[in-house]
Design a protein around this nucleic acid. Structure first.
Lengths: 239, 239
DNA sequence: CGCGATTTGTGCACGCCTTCACAAGCGCCT
DNA sequence: AGGCGCTTGTGAAGGCGTGCACAAATCGCG
């Protein structure tokens, strides 16, 4: 299933046509590197792997290996060209297209997400808000008017929406997911605490806020039981 | 809870490990299992690993191995006792204590988190809201009054707060984290898009909403480039 | 022009996690 | 009581990710 092959031979300069297949762990870190690059803001032309790794909170060897996977643009003895590397990561992540995103469910959480400027500032355009509650339809949030979920197919086609965010209660999430898929959406970010079933070819990522707290709670519990024991040794457990 | 009756370290004499040390990957899945258990709601006394795995969206072998790590309470030929397993996982996660949580930053996102009932319904009590903006102090959100960040040490001590949530802009996050640590908080859930530096013994988990979208964007980009290539074979990439 | 300082790119080993496959154990039915 | 079917618990194998340590490459300077 997985083969190790390097797409780019070291002799081909210029274009990067072939799509490298990156390890999943690397993909998850690229956005971190990108954020770190944007936060540099001190006008340096280049940055070393050590410096960028520190800014992103990772090991420098890991960073170099990650970047090497995408046929990186570093210069030995100097470092990475900030502008070039930024552009390269943005290209790989497909952020140069400012993808259209729709959001379904403008309840408590959805309301906040609709107004979250972190989306707009980092490569995305929220172009439509939907809800099934007629009372909420028509409300304006951050310059967008909430539409009824029935309008999804039409709007999705008009705006070429490929990414959908689900911020509904769990009971409605699967139905909404089906609607999104039917409307042509092929990537879903799910905030509802439930498992979604989708056809092959559709990607789902899940964010469960309570689960994150529960994991922290476990570590609290563990730490509490350790301090009650003799011979406890302190150890860093940072992220 | 019940007696610890499994000594899984045959070499250590006498000292019963008060706490099983679970693989990190297992810990991250326990909340999923717990949610699946709560969602059963069909009154069944027992459930098989196959059934629970399906409800949680994982492989059944993985689930069995996970549960075996905590000295599981299953019966061969029958399955797991739902009530017992639920209690066991809740105990391990430390959820039987309804831990006190404070939230710093009641802006756009923090406002929504303060009102998110998923926290309350899954083992946590939000007991205090803080903000540095004097204009926001005094506002009431979901029955809690926003206090100034300067009151944090006092309130944290009174309420025995061990977990803090950061929902401030990135520029304020590190300072807030320092304040939380100084106030005795030992677990932090960080929604700000930045790297936090904390002392050893303090756990940090990070949720970056934009990163999740960027990862989806990558997969969109990949899928788009695959369909443009010959011999492209679609492949399932489930949750 | 050559040398040393610096930094990237990567081979390699190790440990964690996942998955398969099956033996061990339990309850039910005859 | 005994056998049979079902399900758990786990040994073993393979894959993936991480981090070390070093060779290769580049720049600046004398």
């Amino acid at each position: 299933m997985s083969e190790q092959r390097h797409g780019n031979t070291p002799g081909t300069p210029g274009a990067v046509p072939a799509f490298p297949d990156l390890p999943e762990a690397t993909i998850a870190r690229l956005p971190e590197y990108l954020r770190a690059l944007h936060n540099l803001a001190d006008g340096a032309e280049t940055i070393s792997s050590e410096g960028l790794a520190a800014a992103a909170g990772v090991n420098s060897a890991k960073l170099r290996k990650d970047l090497s996977h995408l046929g990186s643009y570093g210069t030995r003895g100097v470092g990475y060209d900030v502008a070039l590397l930024t552009a390269q990561i943005e290209y790989i992540l497909g952020l140069d297209q400012r993808r259209a995103v729709c959001l379904v469910g403008v309840g408590n959480l959805g309301h906040a997400l609709a107004g979250y400027d972190g989306f707009a500032s980092r490569g995305f355009r929220i172009v439509a808000l939907f809800d099934a509650d007629a009372n909420r339809v028509g409300e304006e949030i951050s310059g967008l008017v909430v539409r009824h979920i029935d309008e999804l197919p039409q709007v999705a086609a008009e705006e070429s929406i490929a990414i959908g965010v689900i911020a509904t209660p769990a009971s409605a999430a699967q139905t909404v997911a089906d609607d999104l898929v039917a409307a042509g959406v092929t990537s879903i970010l799910n905030f509802a605490p439930c498992v979604l079933t989708v056809p092959a070819g559709v990607d789902v990522r899940k964010v469960d806020l309570a689960i994150e707290l529960q994991i922290l709670s476990f570590h609290e519990h563990r730490k509490a039981s350790l301090t009650a024991l003799p011979g406890g040794r302190t150890e860093a457990v940072g992220s």
